[in-house]
Design a protein around this nucleic acid. Structure first.
Lengths: 321, 321
DNA sequence: CGTAAATTCGTAAACGCTTACAAGAATCCA
DNA sequence: TGGATTCTTGTAAGCGTTTACGAATTTACG
C-alpha cells in the first residue's frame, strides 16, 4: 500500500519540459515568462494536480506564518467570530501569510513561534492581553486596547446611524436591546448620543438586556411588551438579537416593520429575514488587521484603527404610522 | 526599524560549541547524545529563546501538516464545530502533525497541499465530497460518507439511550424535537426504535421540528404546548434545542423536570442549566479522526467509525409523577 | 541586415532542519 | 596493553521552493 508521491515542482518542470525556476515564475510572477510556456506549465500543473508545498515556500521566504490565537469561550459569540476567522485566513493568504491556529497558554503565551500574532475574542481586561502587549509587540488585537495594535469596527458610529435612521423615520419611542461588555457599552453610547442630538429624552426603561444571542433577546422583548412597555422602533445590538426581537413581536401578533421597526447590527449573511442593519465589513476588518500586523512585525509603535460601518436599509424598518 | 533575526539551529550550535546535527539530536532524540553536551545545548536554547522552525521541520520530513477544510455556513451549527476544531488541533499536534486551515475551492479542491485533509461540516450530499473522495483518498470526513474515511458519533445509539432513560423514568408521552439532515434523521431513528422496543406506540404529532438551534426550538415547543399537545418527556436533538424547549416550558409556567423531563444531545460545556444529555466525546472524535487520517495517508481502503456516546443524567429529568 | 535592447529561461545557491554515514573517543574484557 | 565494542559527534546531502545572475533568444530599429 505504497503512498503516492506528492508531485513537486520538479515533476511539473519535467512534464512541461522547462526548468523549475520557470515553473516557479509561471506560478508566482506576473511577467517574465512567455505566455505559451506559462500555458504549458499550467497544463502540467493541472494534469499532475500539483499544489505548492507551503513549508517549502515558507522556508524559501515567500510566505510567513502568523498565529491566530482564539480565546476559549469565543463560541458563545460565534457566527461573527467564525466569519472573522475565515476572512482573516483569506486576507493573510493574500498577503503571503499562512494562518496557523496557535493555542494560548493559560499565562497568555503563544505555544508556537510565528512571524506575528492576531488575537481574537479576549475579554475586556484580560490579563493575558497585558502579557501579549509586553512580550509580543508583533501582535494585533481585534478589539480595543491602549498599548497594542488593534482594529475594531466603529461601534458607536454604527449605533448612532441605526438610531438616527429610526429617528428620521419619525419614531420617538425607540427601545434598545443591549448587551454587556465593551462592545455593548459602545453601541449603547451611540444610541444615547443620537437620541440626545435629536432632542428625544432618554428613558432608561426602554433599554432591555439581552446577551448578543437570540433567545435572551426574544424573552426580554416578549416579557417587556407583555409587561406593557411600548415602542415603535427598536435598535438591537446584534443581528441575532434583532431576529429574536422580531420573532417575539410576531409571536405577539405584531407586524414588523409596520407596528415596530427593528434595526440590527453586524449584517450576518443568510439570515431568514432581510434585516435593516449596520453592516460590519468583516473583510475590511480582517485586511486592516493584516495591514497592522505588517506594521507590528516591523516594530512600529502601536496604533488602533476603527473600521467604518454602514447602514443597510432593508425590510424591517418603516416610517412611523 | 530592523527586525530582530530569529535564532536558528546554527546560532544555537555556535553558542553551545557543537554542530547543528548534535543540536538537532539533543532536541529530538532520546539518546545518542552525551548528557553534558545536551545540557550545554539546552542552555544555549534558553539563552537565545530558540524555537524550531515548523516549516523547516516539515520540509525535512519530521512533521507533516494536515489541512482542515471547513465548509462555509458551518457557523450555523457552531458551538459544536468550534469545539471540534480545537480538539482536532490538539489531537493532531500530539501526533506530530500541524493543523493548517485550508480553504476549499468552490469546486471542492483544497487550495493548499497537505499530507492529509480533514473535512468538517459539509452537507449530506455535497458534490464537493464526491470530489474529495475521488481525488483525495488521504482525507477524512467528520460525518458519514460511503466511500471515504469517516468518523461520526453514535447518533442512533445516543438517541436510543436518551429515550430509554425517559422510558425507564416512567414517561409514556415522549415528544421529540428533531431537525433535518442526516444527523437529525439518525437521532430520530434512535428515538423511534426505543419507543418500539418498549412497546410505546409512536405518535407522529409528538415529533416537533426545530433546526438544531435554540429559538426555533423554543417556538416549536411553546406553540405545540399552547396548541394543546401534552407530553411529560422530551428528547431534543441537541443541547441548544433542549435549552430552547426548557425556556419555552418555563415561560409557560411549567417546571422542568417535574412537569416535563428534558434530555438533550451533545453535552456542550458551560450551559446555563445542568442538562441531562447525551455526551459526545469530542476529543475522542478528534483523535479517531486523526487515527483514520493516518490510515488514509497510507492508502488503506476507507472505513468509517462510530464513536461511542454516553448518557449523562443531570437535573432536567425526573421520574414521572 | 546588423547591432542594441528587451525578453525569456536555465543554473545554482539559499532557506532551517533531520538523519545516514563515517570518524573519533571512550569503554570493556581478556 | 591491545583489540573489539559501544558512544558520541561532525559532515554533508536532501527536503521543495524562490530568486539573483547570466546566457540565450527574440524583438526593435536604423
Amino acid at each position: 500500500m505504497s503512498r503516492k508521491r506528492i508531485p513537486t515542482i520538479h515533476d511539473v518542470a519535467r512534464l512541461a519540459g522547462v526548468s523549475t525556476g520557470t515553473v516557479s515564475r509561471a506560478l508566482n510572477a506576473r511577467s517574465g515568462v512567455h505566455p505559451v510556456t506559462r500555458q504549458r506549465v499550467m497544463e502540467a500543473v493541472n494534469q499532475l494536480g500539483y499544489v505548492p508545498s507551503v513549508a517549502a515556500r515558507e522556508l524559501a521566504g515567500r510566505i510567513e506564518s502568523v498565529g491566530v490565537m482564539v480565546t476559549p469561550r469565543i463560541w458563545k459569540y460565534s457566527p461573527y467570530f467564525i466569519l472573522l476567522f475565515e476572512a482573516l485566513s483569506e486576507a493573510l493568504w493574500q498577503e503571503g501569510y499562512q494562518l496557523v491556529e496557535v493555542p494560548m497558554s493559560p499565562a497568555g503565551e503563544p505555544l508556537q513561534a510565528a512571524a506575528g500574532y492576531i488575537v481574537l475574542g479576549a475579554h475586556d481586561h484580560d490579563p493575558r492581553l497585558e502579557r501579549m502587549s509586553q512580550n509580543h509587540p508583533n501582535s494585533v488585537l481585534v478589539g480595543v486596547h491602549p498599548n497594542m495594535f488593534w482594529v475594531a469596527p466603529d461601534d458607536p458610529g454604527g449605533a448612532y446611524a441605526a438610531t438616527q435612521h429610526l429617528l428620521e423615520l419619525g419614531h420617538r419611542e425607540i427601545a434598545h436591546l443591549g448587551a454587556a461588555g465593551q462592545v455593548g457599552r459602545e453601541r449603547f453610547e451611540g444610541y444615547r448620543q443620537a437620541l440626545q442630538d435629536y432632542g428625544v429624552p432618554y428613558r432608561p426603561e426602554l433599554v432591555l438586556n439581552g446577551a448578543f444571542t437570540i433567545l435572551p433577546a426574544y424573552r426580554a422583548v416578549r416579557r417587556a411588551w407583555e409587561g406593557g412597555l411600548r415602542f415603535s422602533g427598536l435598535f438591537a445590538a446584534s443581528d441575532e438579537m434583532a431576529l429574536g426581537a422580531i420573532a417575539a413581536l410576531e409571536d405577539l401578533g405584531l407586524d414588523v416593520p409596520h407596528d415596530v421597526s427593528v434595526v440590527g447590527f453586524d449584517d450576518l449573511p443568510d439570515l431568514e429575514r432581510p434585516l435593516t442593519t449596520v453592516r460590519q465589513e468583516i473583510p475590511a476588518i480582517a485586511s486592516t488587521a493584516v495591514a497592522l500586523l505588517k506594521e507590528a512585525i516591523s516594530r512600529t509603535p502601536p496604533r488602533g484603527v476603527r473600521v467604518g460601518v454602514q447602514l443597510v436599509v432593508r425590510e424591517t424598518t418603516a416610517r412611523k404610522r
